[in-house]
Design a protein around this nucleic acid. Structure first.
Length: 129
DNA sequence: GCATTGACGAAGG
DNA sequence: CCCTTCGCCAATG
């Protein structure tokens, strides 16, 4: 039998319960997947919801593997606190993010979400798990 | 093991 | 509005 070493590595493909602990990334993905269509949220909001608001970077870091998780994570709905499409460069194409948002009736102007405040979706308030 | 980087946030200029 | 500095934590070199 093969005994997989307990490597502390990002299971971006399958963050299965390696023992029990769910990856921090999974929490992020789970929240992002619950973002309603046509709405957006920020890294800080997710981080704050997870209790790591001081580590908003980790949220973005988690999103780094969002392209390999299943089901896919609508990362296009996650922008920075300024409503800017900070992650557009990480998509298949630099314009993919805008296109995806455009399909959800989210207008993007100059790499920034229009009416970001209106479309903002705070999991800590709306979701409230 | 230390230094740098990073899809961020807040504060200051 | 733009840019810079600091903080925060994990991954990478």
């Amino acid at each position: 039998m093969q005994q997989p070493k307990k490597q502390k590595q990002i299971q971006t493909e399958k963050p299965r319960t390696v023992g029990k602990q769910y990856s921090f990334f999974e929490d992020v993905y789970d929240v992002v997947r619950q973002i309603p269509i046509g709405r957006v949220t920020s890294f800080g909001a997710i981080a704050n919801f997870l209790g790591t608001k001081l580590s908003a970077r980790m949220v973005g870091w988690a999103m780094n593997g969002a392209h390999n998780v299943n089901p896919p994570v609508p990362a296009q709905r996650v922008v920075n606190r300024n409503g800017m499409l900070s992650g557009k460069a990480h998509f298949s194409t630099p314009t993919k993010m805008e296109e995806l948002l455009a399909k959800e009736k989210v207008q993007v102007k100059n790499d920034r979400v229009v009416d970001f405040e209106k479309l903002f979706w705070d999991p800590a308030k709306e979701l409230e798990i």
